[in-house]
Design a protein around this nucleic acid. Sequence first.
DNA 1: AAGTGGTCTAGACCACTCT
DNA 2: GAGTGGTCTAGACCACTTC
Lengths: 238, 238
Amino acid sequence: MKTNKFMAIYQDLSGKIKSGELQRNSTIPSEHELAEIYGTSRETIRKALTLLAQNGFIQKIKGKGSIVLDVEKLNFPVSGLVSFKELAQNLGKPSRTTVHKFGLLQPDRFLMSQLQAGSKDEIWEVIRSREIDGEKIILDKDYFLKKSVPLLTKEIAENSIYEYLEKTLHLKISFAKKEIVVEDCTEEDKLYLDLENFQHIVVVRNYVYLDDATLFEYTESRHRLDKFRFVDFARRGH
Amino acid sequence: MKTNKFMAIYQDLSGKIKSGELQRNSTIPSEHELAEIYGTSRETIRKALTLLAQNGFIQKIKGKGSIVLDVEKLNFPVSGLVSFKELAQNLGKPSRTTVHKFGLLQPDRFLMSQLQAGSKDEIWEVIRSREIDGEKIILDKDYFLKKSVPLLTKEIAENSIYEYLEKTLHLKISFAKKEIVVEDCTEEDKLYLDLENFQHIVVVRNYVYLDDATLFEYTESRHRLDKFRFVDFARRGH
DNA sequence: AAGTGGTCTAGACCACTCT
DNA sequence: GAGTGGTCTAGACCACTTC
């Protein structure tokens, strides 16, 4: 990511945990030792270790040390803010995206409330189905505020919109509120997905915010019941 | 929680945000100012603000300041590691817990793998249904390693097991891996829940770890489709 | 008593935003 | 240029675990 010292240390250590160089259930060097090894202050080491703990790589134990957790726990398919493209690559399965609808529209009441938009804000609508292993199992309905995303094309939608937003437009996605519920299938779901006989569908609603805390995207990701899986790593207290 | 300086500042500020004393979309005092106000160093203020940001209270913007986010976003029903009792209190609805099974047992193959237990580890089994607004909509199947939880009673299971674990046994729950999937209803689900005609059920599997990184509990929380809702707040990158 | 992580300090320099 | 948050330092004291 960035070139911070603590980020570099975080990536070095997380890499060593993933590769097995630092074995699970073993303790890593103490903070004082790491400070010497990396030639930094202890607070900088602590920043890196706090990150490792938050992301499930290690557990810090007072008076004892930091031990390496099972990285097998890191099957984070839908956790955080990963995109479909990253997800499919993680699964390593053949996948395909089909764009069914693409265009600019004036928001209706529903979209105005979801995107906190005014009636004269234009909105990009992108509706895509996702095919994995030959089955269309995810329907993604994305809505972007045009004032945040001036230009979007069907070609971009066929690849990764997020890659475009971050690498070309340099938008900084900062945080998101996610909601998961189960709803009745709609006609649209039946039209675009291989639904078999399922009557319900898992709906993941995402409200995505930029760096400056402005809402710029509302997404509905609609997953066929049997193919949905959400994994999360949560720490108590915070 | 604790009596740390940064924790006290966190709780003071988060309280002021919840109460509306610090208004949403306004900027809070700068870190230097806060350091003077609270009579601490800036790094201590930063720890408190980092916590606020992680929990969705504020957004920090470089060069500008920290602005207060919509706290309406804090409907975190199942997010993190909250227990049913906390959840029901949040919802403010009449709720009831019924214990259907309670006892010690030897683990079968399934439990041995879920709890990383040996064949001679004894395990507490607690099966409870949760009734909200007069409908039995959640089936909780809890399994605790006896070596971590020496004693458990039916009376405790009828109230809050987590309160007992934390306040009486002083176990420190540290982190959990959570998995959400949808599965076919079992006979057990039909027996204990008011399932109406739903053929599927949302299953939340929880693997809960203590302070010293030992796994001590496996839980299946089985929710009726139409009553399930999961809300999460996620930050990008970390 | 020695070693560990947890907290806190008083400074410093940087990149960024706003004027 | 002034103010902001982001990073980093070199120390200090504490509570905890282990011996």
